[in-house]
Design a protein around this nucleic acid. Sequence first.
DNA 1: GGTTAGCACTCAGGTCCCAAGAGTGCTAAG
DNA 2: CTTAGCACTCTTGGGACCTGAGTGCTAACC
Lengths: 346, 346
Amino acid sequence: MAEDLNERGRKILEAIIEDYIVSAEPVGSRAMTRRHPLSLSPATVRNVMADLEEMGYIISPHTSSGRVPTEKGYRFYVDSLLQTRHLSREEQLQIEQHYRLKSLRVEDLLQEAGKALSAISNYTGLVMAPRFTATIFRHIEFIRLSQGRILAVFVTRSGLVQNKLIEHDNDLSHAELEQIGNYLTRTLGGLTIQQVRAHIVSEMGQEKALYDKLLQRALRLSQEALSDEPGNQIFIEGTTNILDQPEFADVDRMKRLFRAFEQKSQLVELLDRAQQARGVQIFIGSESEYSDIEGCSLVTAAYSNRRGTLGTLGVIGPSRMPYAMVIPIVDYTARLVSQLLDAEEN
Amino acid sequence: MAEDLNERGRKILEAIIEDYIVSAEPVGSRAMTRRHPLSLSPATVRNVMADLEEMGYIISPHTSSGRVPTEKGYRFYVDSLLQTRHLSREEQLQIEQHYRLKSLRVEDLLQEAGKALSAISNYTGLVMAPRFTATIFRHIEFIRLSQGRILAVFVTRSGLVQNKLIEHDNDLSHAELEQIGNYLTRTLGGLTIQQVRAHIVSEMGQEKALYDKLLQRALRLSQEALSDEPGNQIFIEGTTNILDQPEFADVDRMKRLFRAFEQKSQLVELLDRAQQARGVQIFIGSESEYSDIEGCSLVTAAYSNRRGTLGTLGVIGPSRMPYAMVIPIVDYTARLVSQLLDAEEN
DNA sequence: GGTTAGCACTCAGGTCCCAAGAGTGCTAAG
DNA sequence: CTTAGCACTCTTGGGACCTGAGTGCTAACC
């Protein structure tokens, strides 16, 4: 497909998309030649446009209107036409500014990243917290709340706190619980939650475990505490930004998008998918396969520490989005967050 | 004001408001007499309507249209006309159903309450978590994350977990931190956070504290850990419900409302104000003094345990809201949540 | 042969006007 | 005091009309 596009076709497609990105109006041949110094007449541009339309890169909403990029058009633009410029030092500083003077708790950092993304891009910022199973276990504490009700509190090495309520038949004393917590923290600290789980399973399988009452209880409790995965946490910030986009004057479309924000599961799934890839990943329109966010694009990048990928962050907005600006912002933010998280672990 | 309204005036005002609540259209004299068996002619109703308009209970959007209730009209309706019916046993069961088979963590319970409120009322559910300072301290733990960075984790008696990062100059060992945590948990458990704070301040003022190294450190750490109030946590559930209301076909109004949802601070302030009152509290339109939620009403009730009020929950929707249905739902939910929280503390 | 000017055609959107319908206020009779 | 009647107002929806932007096609041009 792409190879039948000659230099002129590409230039014109690029011009159409860039005009459309700023104006949100169908781009006509005449207006375009006026705005871009292509030294081509409108008639010629029209011919090229007809070709582009045939190839599926653009479409006209009705017979006598200008052209609008299709998803395929955006995809080609993003893959082949766009050159992502680097951020200037000032722009970088502007982003970094959002992370100054803040408490350094991981949750806060991630939420702040979401807010910063939305504020800088003027779209909605998304940040998915690290997968619980992949985080490194640091500390566990069992606290007796009342007869039979025990609260398990885990802390990961990065300082993320999770807790779970356990109902337990035989009442364990404060001292016993403390002993159990200490034992688990001592023996399992430094492993990932996933490894901890595996360890527990293998220990429980061994006969010897049954002879040691404390160990037995510790295993039972910790297994229960880690039994179900907490849903992947996601921060969605700046949802109202997106309301200023002309494409959401249509109330119905807006409703669907906000429903997706409220449910979160679709976005979690998308960000999870994006986590596999290196660098900036872009979903355009129906590529996401969720009709609720139809007409929207997602620009994402994974963040990581020295041990590997932790989570994903990004921006969601209408497909008519200034990718040339958003991509480096997301990219730089992911690097920055990675760096800050790494620094915390020193 | 109210006393110049005779029985007939009240009946008609009630009919107007109830019609308007279901139709969202200005109510005319003719249509109204058809719908309500008042045995009055439209002309008479018109006369009464003119009086009601003069008194400020209703208003007509333009000269030749029906009447719409004013805020004053709603206020009078809620205060004097409306008789809140009790929920039937089935309705109660329907509400209770939302709380079955769920984990019993306090946060989860509160969030669930918000979801239930929104699902049952078809508006947006709000739940403000208990004020941190008023909750009862149960356990504190200091975990050393890295050189100079300590994570303080508190647990309240009801099982609410909070954490805070502390930067500390002199490096404390794992054993020291454990000792300090144990000491604080032992001596301060059972007090409210507020009392804990006061206690720390008074202890630090006493000379003797300076001689005991451990105590000194414990106080210093705990003071820092409790130094700043975490913002009041609020759960806002079912925001998209509200989009189906015809009053939010106006995109601009919707934007403002969602901005209020995103910022949360206005809602927190309102719910906080409502916490003082007993029973169901209602804010109609500009009574809330926030223009972002203009045209909206808030129906709230405080929930509590045996020791006193904990927080507030409620529903927000357009002022054109079936109060007769929403009020008992909010009321019953508050009772139910109170009961469930009390049961947990046993 | 690619490029361009010219031309006829299409369509959305704004404006104007009109008719219908719902509602009002006023007046006079019951 | 209540109500029937009437003239009047105002919104809403539809239709007619115009304008402007844009298109596709054809024929001339370089």
